[in-house]
Write a protein that binds this DNA or RNA. Structure first.
Lengths: 216, 216
DNA sequence: ATGGGGCGTTTGTGATCACGAAAGCAGGTC
DNA sequence: GACCTGCTTTCGTGATCACAAACGCCCCAT
């Protein structure tokens, strides 16, 4: 039930449970940009006091998943176009490297898993399910990058995803595409062929494509 | 007096003061790897209760500056050689991009500032001052990267520095070099010449050089 | 000497409260 | 009608406390 693999699953610590749930909601676009949150409200939702809510929020703010106003109010970030461009460039840098490192270890079982996930992506697209699309799309990338055996890099990539979550939801909400992900097929083909330059290009294109529509 | 530029300097909030101070101590190698900390101890040092100490620690843990044991004990990270390699690769990826983006905006005033900072680096090296070396070295890089006008990327780079802080201290402590930083001069020369490939190579070499001595 | 058991101490966690500031809202004025 | 001026509510911050788990230390038995 918890698709996000953490380094060490352990105690049912309250603040960690709140953190994981909020993190998923933000990363997968459950919350629109600028959405306000309160410590007391979060505590109520998860039936905990303000203390664990505060720790979870503090952690998410440190990761860029949430932002604090000057007076300490909590909300999801509203990204400027400059920041979106930066985050897309970071995705390109880090994820191309992750894909490149995963390539030598990408066996047939992985490629088949990626195809299965990709059909789930197509299904989400067909159903106009923005959250489902974001979730399955990120699962596609994460599944590939896990093979890179580079946890620090993967964590960085996930941090970028986290920051873009609400914005991606708003973005894919307004551009109602119905065509399945094209570049995912290119990624799979490059993996099959062991074509590293092709893989790098396919990943770079895939992670930066959606941004071209966001000129403003 | 606070060299680290934050997004918004505002209130004298207790937890933020604790955070900033601890962050500097970690980033600049004031604490050795594996050094243990306690919430009550931190609170005592800064004359606050456990609450702000806890928030500062939570934030630093989220950034990778500190790690928590399975039972929640706080300590500075002890990095495996694989993780060090990863972090060095991340530095290379991100900082090369930052330098490249800073290049078109690097005027003479910036280059002179870099030279001034670089002489401070040399002085720290001559005095065997590990903390001073790390601090001035990072100031050199940060000064250059600030010109890139890419706050999200700079934040990522600083997060990597933060994670490497204690290890860098331990590293530079055991290899007592006395020669001034060679690749900083190459960086400055490439900036002067507007030589982008040269700059990229110089930065990449500079940020990955210290790692070769850490084969273990 | 060395390994194991027992106990006092230290530590993180979560709940609760007081406080001050910010935000939202109403009513009144220009 | 728009704007400002109060007031009321809501919010984040920091302090304090109870609790359970862990750590560390000492002592003893082998």
């Amino acid at each position: 039930m918890t698709p996000t693999a953490k380094s060490s699953d352990s105690l049912p610590v309250a603040h960690d449970r709140v953190y994981r749930s909020l993190r998923q909601r933000v990363m997968y676009g459950d919350l629109p940009p600028g959405h306000a949150l309160t410590l007391r409200g979060i505590g109520k939702d998860y039936e905990v006091s303000m203390t664990p809510a505060r720790e979870a929020v503090r952690r998410l703010v440190a990761e860029g998943a949430l932002t604090l106003s000057a007076s300490g109010r909590i909300s999801t970030p509203e990204l400027s176009s400059e920041r979106i461009e930066e985050l897309a460039a970071l995705r390109a840098l880090i994820e191309v490297e992750l894909a490149s490192r995963a390539l030598p270890r990408a066996h047939m079982a992985l490629i088949e898993r990626l195809q299965t996930i990709n059909s789930a992506v197509s299904e989400a697209v067909a159903h106009r399910d923005a959250v489902g699309y974001i979730r399955t799309n990120l699962e596609f990338h994460r599944t590939l990058y896990l093979r890179a055996q580079a946890p620090a890099m993967l964590a960085m990539a996930e941090t970028v995803w986290l920051q873009m979550g609400p914005t991606m939801r708003a973005l894919y909400g307004k551009l109602r595409r119905t065509e399945p992900p094209h570049y995912h097929r290119l990624i799979i083909a490059a993996l099959r062929a062991g074509d590293e330059p092709g893989l790098r290009l396919a990943v770079r294109t895939d992670v930066t494509q959606g941004l071209r529509l966001l000129a403003t």
